[in-house]
Design a protein around this nucleic acid. Structure first.
Length: 279
DNA sequence: CCAAGGCCTGAATG
DNA sequence: ACATTCAGGCCTT
């Protein structure tokens, strides 16, 4: 069955990760303090000898896809990109990535994150190529806002520093966030300024094992209006906190506990329809 | 509880 | 050329 094969290209090019490059048919990427190399069959080599199941091969993908296949639109999206997967990212890198992403675009996010890695991350060699690891929390916690700002992140520099401090001090702890519920984890990370509803959901879905998270960005709102105008109608012009929660509840009722996977398929399909550039 | 405005920045639009 | 808008939001008023 084709359906169980992982489509590495599609998965990396779906707005989840930013520090990835392709050399000949191989993808190289930064994941926290690790470097990963993935071939087109989904075989991974890593610098530290462990990839933490980056491609989520242990997920029962057949069961998941089956469970979210609730309507024609999502079934079409899955059919189009059957090998698309959620990637299990390093939480700190993921957190900073999506703080940087707000009010921005993929090209710029990528540039900003590369700058951050080069400036604050450790230079390292993997398979005769040079990389910069993602900086550790402590490094960014101790950096000045000015230094961070020089990476081109603008007003987000203060958010980044504050976030790094909270992670470094263990005021917010990834291991406990992984164990606790979606709601509780979301409340916790939204204490960090720069992390609102959408950014929080990205972090939870991509790095903290909360597959019911369903990030609602401009694109997803457009998608819902276009394909799901009957079931998920917006009550207000702007997405307020309250509205966000109401929609998410409806989404969960519709797609179930793996709604985050559904989000990824819908997002990928629509972005490709509009031929948006990825990495 | 909702609406409006401001915010770094670079590319795209007029 | 130069001004304005916009891009995968968030925070404050």
């Amino acid at each position: 069955m084709q359906k169980n094969l992982i489509d590495v290209d599609s998965s990396i090019n779906s707005g989840q990760v930013f520090l990835w490059k392709k050399f000949d048919e191989l993808w190289y990427g930064i994941n926290g303090q690790n470097i990963l190399k993935i071939d087109k069959f989904g075989e991974i080599n890593s610098k530290v000898g462990n990839d933490d199941d980056f491609l989520r091969k242990t997920d029962n993908i057949k069961k998941i896809l089956d469970s979210i296949s609730k309507d024609k639109t999502i079934r079409e999206a899955i059919k189009k990109y059957p090998g698309l997967r959620i990637l299990r990212q390093d939480p700190f890198q993921c957190m900073i990535s999506f703080i940087v992403s707000s009010n921005s675009n993929i090209q710029k996010i990528k540039l900003n994150l590369e700058n951050i890695s080069e400036k604050f991350g450790e230079k390292t060699c993997f398979e005769k190529k040079n990389f910069y690891l993602f900086p550790k929390p402590k490094k960014l916690a101790n950096a000045t806002v000015k230094e961070i700002r020089e990476c081109g992140v603008g007003y987000r520099a203060e958010f980044i520093k504050e976030c790094a401090q909270m992670i470094n001090s263990k005021e917010i702890d990834f291991d406990s966030l992984r164990k606790t519920s979606y709601e509780q984890a979301k409340n916790e990370i939204m204490k960090i300024s720069g992390i609102g509803n959408k950014v929080a959901d990205c972090i939870l879905l991509f790095s903290l094992e909360k597959l019911e998270a369903f990030p609602l960005d401009r694109w997803m709102i457009r998608i819902l209006e276009k394909y799901y105008s009957n079931e998920f109608k917006l009550e207000t012009k702007t997405i307020t906190e309250k509205q966000y929660q109401i929609i998410h509840e409806k989404i969960l009722n519709h797609f179930g506990g793996y709604a985050g996977y559904a989000q990824q398929f819908l997002f990928k399909m629509e972005r490709e329809n509009y031929q948006k550039r990825w990495l």
